[in-house]
Nucleic acid binder design. Structure first.
Lengths: 364, 364
DNA sequence: GTGAAAGCGCTAACAA
DNA sequence: TTGTTAGCGCTTTCAC
């Protein structure tokens, strides 16, 4: 924690000017080899670490990209960690570190997106800064991260539109997983509609199921497209769409109730198409608890393709998003835009893939 | 991307000096309310976002904490993402976004630690910067992140000791998940030894098993402590420890081979104690494929407590690490150290909890 | 190939 | 309460 050595210290020790020190690091080819070595040695001896702040200030760019995520559960993750609030599954997220809380299914897809960004950042010479918060955050909070990066990727339901717009005036901003909106921002999403439509068709065509119910929270942007895909496939087959909104504070309990209700009424659906994997896992559990076998009596499917769906029994038929690639693409767009900024926003829609596994009734 | 407005612009527009603008943001109570509003309005109108670089430079601190992770598979995640290299399970990590690669079990515990740091950062007014890389990274790469943060948390097997030491001279550094070493760095780890010992004892005492084999990669620091716990519990019960190292390029294939071998020899162990959950899941799969039932014929256990172990069938008996809390603690130590630096390194060992589920033979 | 010097945008004394 | 001013550490012309 002693005061960090600066270019001045290195320069003094090496007997050169600070410009030479700077050149040695930034444009090594411009300094004579002997000089370079003298400087490098001095730097090493001193334990010199260039100040990113100073560099950023002088150079006009920070060298960092930002990923701004929703907070978990529409509230600060801080509170969740403190155990103040009860977990919920809306966002596909649940968790607590409490010893007696066993259930923790994070929105794993967020992690994968981040990983993609991280990778692309590394490749393009940037570092990644992560932030989180809900739409409620104040403008100054946002500045906290926007002022630190040269480009920003944001997940849905995080920053209000006007704030995003303001940030976008300074640095490129890409929205992830949002349905197309012509709002001037760059966008990267996946084919939620097509994926869900294909999956629904699989259930109808391959398994001959007719009574298929779609379950999922509403309000979430990309889930709407999935719902659309489901609806369209059902209609095309002359079937009646049927939707249950899981938008409840305690999804596990809610789903148990739904299943119980089905049994009381004596009318189990033939298949439950969930808008996210985590939800599907909950349904599988609830059905199992109720003595109903999946997929024999009721088929269940998810969406996203998180790892948990691979190890579940039965393994989960789902639609896999290229999450890593989403992150890679976001970072890539940002970096590209920083150099040659295009007049029109870049809009990418990545393909998804239906992953047929066991829970739909196919032998895996 | 138009040039960002600065304090000067805001000051001009508000008809005040730049100091007043600065005060308005940093010490609002020190400016008259009317002035404050004038300034805020001007700032909002201009879309002013303070430059973190300039602030960091002037103030002497960046306001960011760093988390430096291993790269996945001992190589750059970049290559992994590009699909250049084949996944491996050593680090509990496997993955690919390739459509035809279905197997992706990330080292989820890393994500949870990060989440904890993120939460604590938010609470303490910091942002989180993430970086990754192996011991092979050059010093300048490291500066890339070390020069940006006020404190750094590092996962094992990332930065070489001497580099860490050099960084620690400038900013607090905490090592995560390392067995205690008196190296002057702050350390946060969990009771790997005790956890594995307790789990082994459970298998011996509750299930009456005697032929228990420990499997896991060697080399990994915290796995050694787990191995120790296993060994000690076995010895204490008068049993002979037996270890298989899974340190292979293709763990799935390797494990299949191990199982096949057991069958050929006709000597299945009664229990397989894995050093990480992901490995346990692979063993369960391999045993299942070989027609061996878990836990009836062979019990299997893991370590870490990742979410995948909850949904697997049978669910995985394991030892849960308080991962979030690890991250929280790391960030907390860093922030604390920045203000009142203690002379001695802070060394914390967090407790773990044995999670008895189905794969050990207990009815869950 | 190297040095001198002018900022980059902001903070924090110190003055007023 | 507000303004003036001197840096913070580095990059980058422009001379030499």
């Amino acid at each position: 924690m002693s005061k960090s050595p600066t270019v001045y210290d290195v320069a003094a020790r090496a007997g050169v000017s600070i410009a030479t020190v700077s050149f040695t690091f930034r444009q090594p080819h411009r300094v004579r080899e002997t000089t370079r070595e003298t400087v490098m040695t001095a730097a090493r001896d001193l334990g010199y670490v260039p100040s990113a702040s100073a560099r950023g200030l002088a150079h006009g760019r920070t060298g960092a990209l930002g990923l701004y995520s929703f907070d978990y559960f529409g509230q600060s993750i801080n509170e969740v960690v403190r155990g103040i609030s009860s977990p919920s599954l809306h966002t596909g997220a649940v968790f607590s570190d409490e010893d007696n809380e066993d259930f923790r299914l994070f929105p794993l897809y967020h992690d994968e997106i981040q990983r993609g960004m991280e990778a692309e950042c590394g490749r393009r010479g940037y570092v990644l800064m992560v932030g989180e918060g809900g739409a409620a955050r104040s403008q100054s909070d946002i500045a906290e991260i926007a002022g630190r990066v040269d480009g920003l990727a944001v997940l849905p339901n995080t920053l209000p539109r006007d704030v995003l717009g303001r940030i976008a005036e300074r640095i490129p901003v890409v929205e992830l997983s949002v349905p197309f909106k012509d709002n001037g921002l760059h966008q990267v999403s996946v084919d939620n509609f097509g994926g869900m439509k294909a999956l629904t068709e699989h259930m109808i065509d391959e398994h001959g199921l007719k009574d298929l119910v779609f379950v999922g929270p509403n309000g979430s942007t990309d889930k709407q497209a999935r719902h659309e895909g489901y609806t369209q496939a059902m209609r095309a087959a002359g079937l009646t769409p049927n939707t249950i909104e899981t938008d409840q504070p305690d999804p596990i309990q809610f789903v148990d109730g739904v299943v119980r209700n089905w049994m009381n009424e004596g009318e189990l659906p033939q298949g439950v198409l969930c808008s996210v994997d985590e939800e599907a896992l909950v349904y599988m559990d609830a059905l199992k608890k109720a003595g109903i076998s999946v997929p024999q009596q009721v088929a269940v499917t998810g969406f996203n393709g998180v790892a948990a769906g691979l190890v579940s029994r039965p393994s989960l038929t789902t639609v896999r998003q290229p999450l890593i690639r989403l992150g890679v693409m976001a970072a890539s767009i940002l970096v590209d835009q920083m150099t040659k900024r295009s007049s029109n926003p870049v809009v990418e829609e990545l393909p998804v893939k239906v992953m047929i596994r066991e829970s739909c009734g196919c032998e895996s």
